[in-house]
């Protein structure tokens, strides 16, 4: 502004692109709706409308055949008194917090170990692949490997364990499910966290080392603060995927001819069983109500987690 050269240069710089931009902008505006419409219509048909429909359905009683009956909030009241539903919420929260925290600790541990290890790309790929495979497969594997006379118990017998735990007994089943989940999710989160940690310049660690920082202090004061953004995104991501867990629980420790024991149900399983379960009755209203509860759950948890993690990030 002060010198005469600057405004001149600036004027030329802005004038040229503007001419170009406006041509692009004009054709873009013309193309905006035609190009967006197909995806937008699908989005409305498969997301917006179904959510609204589910909300309305949750206030009704319907088996899919007879007339729909308005029941108001009855479905929600019934759910609040249903121990299976409460259990499914608790299981989902267990997956979110217990599996989530353990997975994160493992992922960070692996990241720190892998950071300067030979063959880290190979290791990362091998640990990543379970993420891509239908979790059902791991349910079948676990059912086979941990069956009473299965390989795991045979191996334990070899090392002298006469009385192995009853892996697939009802009380242990959900813990086993959580262990399989931790195993299959760790690779994915390790990869994400590693890509964030890899961007931290090595001399930060060197400097910290020279100041006398041990591995823990380096982790606490260099890695954690600098990777914080990615961690908070991972937390949100995990929240969303933990509410969806379905296949693994459906097949865990056996088959689906009969539904899995109710003590292992997640909200996804509850929604499915209420509407299409092998029990026979199709309770679309109850199913929709439980679906809405899980949507509210994921929304509240996501917002809550983001708030919580964002506040911590400000410290840095």
């Amino acid at each position: 502004m002060a010198t005469p050269v600057l405004p001149l240069a600036r004027g030329r710089n802005t004038a040229r692109p503007r001419a170009g931009m406006s041509a692009i902008e004009r054709s873009r505006r013309r193309l905006f709706w035609p190009m967006l419409a197909p995806a937008l219509i699908l989005m409305i048909l498969f997301y917006l409308v179904p959510i609204i429909f589910a909300g309305w359905l949750s206030l009704n009683e319907w088996d899919g055949i007879n007339e729909l009956k308005w029941v108001g909030l009855d479905n929600y009241i019934r759910l609040s008194k249903d121990p299976v539903f409460i259990g499914s919420i608790i299981n989902t929260l267990k997956i979110l917090f217990i599996v989530g925290i353990v997975t994160f600790v493992f992922a960070f541990g692996l990241t720190m170990i892998l950071r300067d290890m030979m063959g880290k790309k190979f290791v990362r790929s091998v640990l990543f692949f379970p993420t891509l495979i239908n979790a059902m497969v791991f349910g079948i594997f676990a059912g086979f490997l941990f069956s009473p006379s299965g390989p795991v118990n045979k191996l334990l017998l070899l090392v002298g364990v006469q009385d192995p735990p009853k892996w697939l007994a009802q009380d242990n089943l959900f813990n086993m499910i959580m262990i399989v989940m931790i195993w299959s999710a760790t690779g994915y989160f390790t990869t994400i966290i590693m890509s964030a940690v890899d961007q931290i310049p090595a001399y930060y660690y060197e400097a910290a080392g020279l100041d006398g920082a041990g591995p823990w202090t380096k982790f606490r004061h260099v890695t954690l603060p600098l990777a914080w953004d990615v961690i908070s995104v991972c937390a949100v991501l995990w929240t969303m995927s933990s509410v969806k867990v379905f296949e693994l629980i459906l097949v865990f420790g056996g088959s689906t001819a009969k539904p899995p024991p109710t003590s292992t149900w997640s909200t996804a399983l509850y929604v499915f069983q209420a509407a299409f379960g092998s029990g026979g009755d199709r309770e679309f209203g109850i199913s929709a109500a439980s679906a809405i509860v899980s949507l509210v759950l994921v929304t509240v948890l996501t917002i809550g987690l983001r708030r919580m993690l964002r506040r911590d990030a400000v410290e840095i």
Binding site: A39, M43, F46, L57, M240, A275, S287
Partner: peptide, 24 residues
């Protein structure tokens, strides 16, 4: 606004859409 709509769609668990999509 639309970008936000698509991003929000990412967070919707499949089971929420299960019954309505089936009926639709």
């Amino acid at each position: 606004t639309f970008t936000l709509l698509f991003v929000l769609g990412l967070g919707v668990p499949g089971q929420v859409l299960l019954v309505p999509v089936y009926i639709m």
